[in-house]
Amino acid sequence: LNLKQAKEEAIKELVDAGIAEKYIKLIANAKTVEGVWTLKDEILTFTV
Rank of each mutant, 00 (worst) to 15 (best):
E8K: 10
K25D: 09
G18W: 03
W37F: 10
V48K: 07
L39C: 03
K31V: 13
V15C: 07
V33E: 04
E13A: 12
V36N: 00
E34Q: 08
T32A: 02
A28P: 02
Q5D: 08
E13I: 13
E42M: 12
A30H: 02
V36H: 01
A20H: 11
A20G: 08
Q5P: 02
A20S: 11
A28F: 12
K31G: 08
K31M: 13
N29E: 12
D16E: 14
E34R: 06
E34C: 05
A17D: 02
T45H: 14
A20I: 07
A30G: 03
F46K: 10
I27C: 02
Y23S: 02
K31E: 14
K7Q: 08
A17H: 10
K40D: 00
L44C: 04
I11S: 04
A20E: 13
L3P: 01
G18K: 05
K7C: 03
V36D: 00
L26Y: 06
K12G: 05
L26A: 06
F46T: 12
E42F: 15
E13Q: 13
A17C: 05
W37L: 13
Y23T: 03
D16W: 08
E42N: 08
L26V: 06
E42V: 10
K22L: 08
K31D: 13
K40L: 14
N29D: 13
K25E: 11
G18Y: 04
E21S: 09
W37Y: 11
L26S: 04
D41I: 14
F46L: 15
I11W: 05
E9C: 06
D41G: 07
I27K: 01
A17I: 07
Q5C: 06
K22I: 09
N2C: 06
T45R: 15
I11K: 05
G35Y: 09
K4D: 12
I19P: 00
Y23H: 04
V48W: 08
K31I: 13
T32I: 01
K40A: 06
D41N: 13
L1I: 12
A6T: 04
E34H: 08
A28V: 10
L1K: 12
L44S: 03
K40F: 14
A28L: 14
V36T: 03
L1E: 11
K22Y: 13
L3Y: 02
L14S: 01
E9G: 05
G35A: 15
V33G: 01
E21H: 09
K25C: 06
T45E: 11
N29H: 11
K7D: 00
N29R: 08
T32D: 08
L14C: 04
E13C: 09
A30N: 01
A10R: 00
V15P: 00
D41V: 13
G18S: 04
K7M: 12
A6S: 05
D16I: 10
T47M: 15
V33Q: 04
E13D: 07
N29S: 14
K7H: 03
E9S: 10
K12L: 07
V33W: 04
E21F: 08
K25H: 11
K12V: 04
K4W: 12
D16P: 02
V36S: 01
K4G: 07
K25F: 07
N2Y: 11
A28I: 14
L1M: 12
E8P: 00
K7G: 02
A30I: 06
K40T: 06
E34L: 09
K4P: 05
A28Q: 15
E9Y: 12
I24F: 09
A10C: 06
Y23P: 00
Q5W: 09
Q5A: 11
V15N: 08
T38N: 13
L1Y: 13
K40H: 07
L3E: 00
K22W: 09
A6L: 05
F46Y: 13
K40G: 01
Y23M: 05
A28M: 14
E9K: 14
L26R: 05
A6G: 01
F46N: 14
E34A: 07
E34M: 09
T45C: 12
K12C: 05
K7W: 03
I43T: 02
N2L: 14
K4Q: 14
K25M: 11
Q5G: 06
Y23W: 12
E34S: 07
L39W: 03
E9H: 12
A20T: 06
Q5V: 08
D16H: 13
W37T: 09
L26W: 11
T32M: 02
K7A: 04
I24T: 06
I27F: 04
V48L: 14
I27Q: 00
A17M: 12
L39Q: 04
I11M: 10
F46D: 08
K7Y: 05
I27V: 09
D16Y: 10
G18M: 06
E21R: 07
L3F: 03
T45Q: 14
N2F: 11
I43D: 00
L3A: 02
I24A: 03
L1W: 09
I19F: 07
K40M: 13
I43V: 05
A20R: 05
D41S: 11
N2D: 14
T38K: 15
E8H: 08
N2I: 12
V36W: 01
K4F: 08
L26Q: 07
L1N: 10
T32H: 04
A30K: 03
